[in-house]
Simulated assay, not measured.
Amino acid sequence: MNLSPLPTIMLEPLVRAALLEDLGRAGDLTTDAIVPKDHRATTLLVARQAGVVAGLDLAILAFRLVDQDLAIAVGRVDGSHVAPGDIIASVTGPTRAMLTAERTALNFLCHLSGIATATTSIVNAIGGHEAKVVCTRKTTPGLRALEKYAVRAGGGSNHRFGLDDAILIKDNHIAVAGGIRSAIERARNSVGHLVKIEVEVDTLAQLEEALALAPDAVLLDNMSLDELRRAIAMVAGRGITEASGRITAATAPAIAATGVDLISVGWLTHSAPILDIGLDYRSS
């Protein structure tokens, strides 16, 4: 997998804010009271369950922002599959610093690894089909770039990042515009030639109306398998087809088999369970 890391300049403000939220007004009272200032140790980031790693750079950054003297040795990079007991990384240095950074590091690492793991479950489920798994804008406020990165780490692809990089005409836009034709025409007259236009349709009749105006993509929302097959035949390669609507690893294979190009899954970023990862004390 050719997974490009996110630039540190994007990550540092998020990690710094998370650490400051945790440290509050007086710092780590528990660790400072119990652990001698000069104590040093080695701890291990260990997978408690099988999954896919994502967010290790954020975890490393959390440790190093607390203390630059912490040394981190990476055992599994982002995008790696891990089994229970696998060591993702080791952290060596001042014990106070690693314990203070522990929760922030794990919050990022567990959350993003959970998204990557969930994405992989659907990617694997549709293996053998041409469809790609994509995420949506249903992301945690402030963490969109991270969560979309985690989808890529899990083998998925990204839909638009925000309201400003593509036009997606949905049901409310159509209602306000007075119909699909008016909505697409207004959109096309308002943006430059590099901005793609996608329109959401719920029925084959809406799809037929949309296709007459040649959008770049059509979002086939909550259609049955039979409707999806008929919709793909109607599009006949004239645009990108995307299926959406409460899709899971169990339902995705049949949807992919219809020939749809994209399968969008909102819960990957808004509801994926974490991957259980712990920080284990190894030695002084």
Rank of each mutant, 00 (worst) to 15 (best):
L106I: 04
A125T: 14
P141W: 09
A105P: 06
G127C: 15
L106V: 03
T136M: 06
H111D: 04
H111I: 02
H129V: 05
S113I: 14
T139I: 15
K132E: 08
L112S: 05
H129F: 11
T140M: 08
E102W: 00
T117F: 04
T100F: 01
E102Y: 00
L106D: 00
H129N: 12
C110V: 09
L112Y: 06
M98A: 07
V133A: 10
N124D: 15
L143C: 10
V134K: 05
T139K: 12
C110W: 10
T139D: 06
I122A: 05
L112T: 08
R144N: 13
I115R: 09
L143P: 04
L112R: 03
K138L: 02
L99H: 03
H129Y: 14
G142M: 10
L109Q: 00
N107L: 09
T100C: 02
G128Q: 15
A116M: 06
G127T: 15
G142P: 11
V134S: 02
N107E: 07
R144P: 12
P141T: 04
H111F: 11
I122N: 05
I126R: 12
T117H: 01
A131D: 14
L143A: 11
A118Q: 11
P94H: 03
L109F: 03
L99C: 01
V134Q: 13
P94Y: 05
F108G: 06
G127W: 13
I115M: 06
A116F: 14
K138Y: 10
K132R: 12
M98K: 00
T120S: 10
L112I: 11
G128F: 11
A131Y: 01
N107I: 08
A105K: 01
S113R: 07
A131T: 10
P94E: 06
P141S: 11
E130L: 14
G114R: 13
L106M: 07
S113E: 05
L112W: 10
I126A: 14
N107Y: 08
I126M: 13
R144M: 02
K138M: 11
L99E: 04
V123T: 10
R144K: 12
